Computed example of a mutant assay.
Amino acid sequence: MAAIFRLGNRQILSQLRNEKLGMLSLVRPVTLKAQPATKEIDIGHDERNMQLGRPQSPHLTIYSFQLTSMLSITHRATGMMLAGYAIMWGTGAVVLPDTIPHYLDALQQAHVGGFVLSMGKFMLAFPMCYHFWNGIRHLAWDLGRFLTIKEVYATGYAMLALTVASAIALTSM
């Protein structure tokens, strides 16, 4: 056995000593041939997945909406609505030639029905009430209160009830 290893070592060492053009004879020379890059077909993500036979994810068709995510989305939406109202009222105060009582008198003279007027008031009051009560809820969370799932859902439903009740109360004024 030792003789076989000795013979193998001698052959490897003799090949390592033979140098060919500065390279070891054990290393096989490789030549790379330059080729132009292949141009990728410019197709969309969905088309490519269809060609590859990949299924499309049903993401929104199987998603069940949760109270927590919906309340978060609507909190942001009501914040944007309130900012829009502030911009509209401020721009109107600067641009319109008459004062607000003049426009309120014009609205009364137009004999707008009570239902339409009430709906207009409700549309102004609801985002403010919602954003207010949900903001109180968020402040309670910042204090470390009502953070379990059961409490989050309970405060969510309570906040919705307070929002509707206070918006109706403001509408009836």
Rank of each mutant, 00 (worst) to 15 (best):
V30M: 04
D46E: 06
S25I: 08
M50K: 02
M23A: 08
S118M: 10
R28S: 13
S14A: 15
N9F: 15
Q108M: 13
H59V: 14
E40Y: 14
N18F: 11
L107V: 15
Q109M: 14
A93K: 09
L67K: 00
L52G: 03
L32K: 00
S72V: 12
M123K: 13
T78H: 09
G22A: 00
P97H: 11
M23E: 09
K20D: 06
K20P: 00
K20T: 07
F115T: 14
G120W: 12
Q109G: 12
Q15D: 11
L71F: 05
L117M: 15
A93Q: 05
Q51R: 06
N18S: 08
R28T: 13
L26V: 09
M119F: 15
P36L: 02
I12G: 13
L24C: 10
L16T: 08
M88W: 12
L24G: 07
A106E: 13
Q11T: 07
M80E: 07
L16K: 04
M50T: 02
G8K: 10
P29A: 03
G120A: 12
K33D: 01
Q109H: 13
T99P: 00
T91Q: 06
G114F: 05
R48M: 07
G84A: 04
R48L: 07
T68L: 14
V94C: 13
T91A: 07
R48W: 08
T78I: 00
P36R: 01
L13R: 14
A110F: 05
F115G: 10
T78A: 06
Q56D: 06
W89I: 01
M23Q: 05
W89S: 07
A37L: 02
P101L: 01
G8W: 10
I100S: 01
L24P: 03
I12S: 14
S118D: 09
P29E: 09
G44E: 02
L13C: 13
L7P: 00
G114H: 09
G113Y: 02
R17W: 12
Q66I: 10
A110T: 04
M50W: 00
A106S: 08
Q109W: 11
A106T: 05
A86R: 03
A77W: 12
S118I: 11
L21Q: 15
E19D: 10
G53Y: 02
S14M: 12
L26D: 03
F65G: 10
S14D: 13
L104V: 11
M80N: 06
A86L: 01
G113N: 09
R54L: 10
V95K: 04
T61K: 10
M70P: 07
M81P: 01
L21N: 14
L7C: 06
V27S: 07
H59Q: 13
Q108K: 15
I41S: 06
M88R: 09
L67A: 07
T61A: 10
K39D: 02
R48I: 08
I73S: 01
G8H: 11
Q51L: 06
E19N: 14
